[in-house]
Design a protein around this nucleic acid. Structure first.
Lengths: 177, 177
DNA sequence: AGCCTACCTTCCACCCTTGACAGGTCAACG
DNA sequence: CGTTGACCTGTCAAGGGTGGAAGGTAGGCT
């Protein structure tokens, strides 16, 4: 349901083709809302059928450039201001944590260790992304920095938590013996 | 794809009916992996057809109690030890953050303020859940505590981040004027 | 005895997401 | 001139998640 708004939002900066949008998704937005190409093209079709987008230009290879209409901007604004974001937290990792008791303590701590290093790697990857986000570039990147910071903090949290949890398991093991 | 493992995991503690499972989901697991009743019953059917579960007892109102088979335990273990958890981070809130530039600074900070109070409320709700998780009760609750701690830390992170982000926007606004 | 509530299962229709496939065109380089 | 690679759009099947509706039974309370 939010993909449509992601597309509207990206196009509100400047008109683009489906192909362009895919690149935008891959570069910046993929971390918060991944999308496949079939989804993007499908959504462009639906949005223009609904009058929220128009084909603003046609290029070389059948390229169609879409631009947001007034109705599209209104919808985007409506979404941002008057609707509540849906928060479904579904974490396969945490689901596994619930069942860690089915493993031996060693296996469980190993799992958490993997989790910790993974979080560290992700933090490193995000830090490499940091200079990419040029402060003055466009309005999107300004707020992209905020999202990036969130990602960094989250990765740090995950690493610390995983280490702490491994410690908890080790402590419980000692208490039992 | 993980719902099947959530069901297997819950049943590995003790046998239960679909109705029982729904209550378990609502009480503990819903925070990390929500499920609807249609999903649960469907999954029970598929799992017993696949031989990972058996009907261990039949009760009053057509109640069927399912128990994990040896194959089911093997599958559960396989999932825990030999497969990688899927990590798709899809956050509608962060998606909106990317497009906060379409709002006035005041509207944007208001959005973040809502986010901060929401995180605080969630933390409070989780803290109320804390005594529910009895340390010695069952193997599941031991690790449930770990998941709960994660939730608490995450909520704290979200609140702090939202306040920080609001500050960033205010600072940018001042710099511009 | 009768009713209400909790118990308990099952089916269906819709949407989003994924992944794969299909197909076509322009530009540049050797 | 021919091939390669980047560009560009589109369709389809399958699967998971959501929400709602339907339908029926046991136990307890008045």
């Amino acid at each position: 349901m939010s993909l449509r708004h992601a597309v509207l939002g990206l196009l509100s900066e400047h008109p683009a083709s489906g192909y362009d949008l895919m690149k935008l998704f891959e570069s910046s937005l993929s971390n918060v809302w991944p999308a496949t190409q079939s989804q993007v093209y499908g959504e462009l079709g639906k949005l223009s059928a609904a009058g929220l987008l128009t084909v603003s230009a046609e290029g070389p290879r059948g390229r169609k450039e879409y631009a947001v209409t007034a109705a599209g901007r209104a919808e985007l604004r409506h979404w941002l201001v008057e609707t509540e974001p849906e928060r479904v937290r579904r974490s396969e990792t945490l689901l596994r944590v619930f069942f860690l008791g089915l493993l031996t303590p060693d296996e469980a701590t190993a799992f958490l260790a993997v989790e910790a290093t993974r979080a560290a790697q992700e933090a490193a990857a995000l830090r490499e992304l940091e200079p990419t986000v040029d402060p003055g570039a466009n309005a999107l990147s300004v707020h992209g920095r905020l999202a990036l910071e969130y990602g960094l903090r989250l990765a740090a949290l995950q690493e610390e938590w995983a280490r702490w949890a491994a410690g908890q398991i080790a402590a419980a093991q000692e208490a039992a013996s």
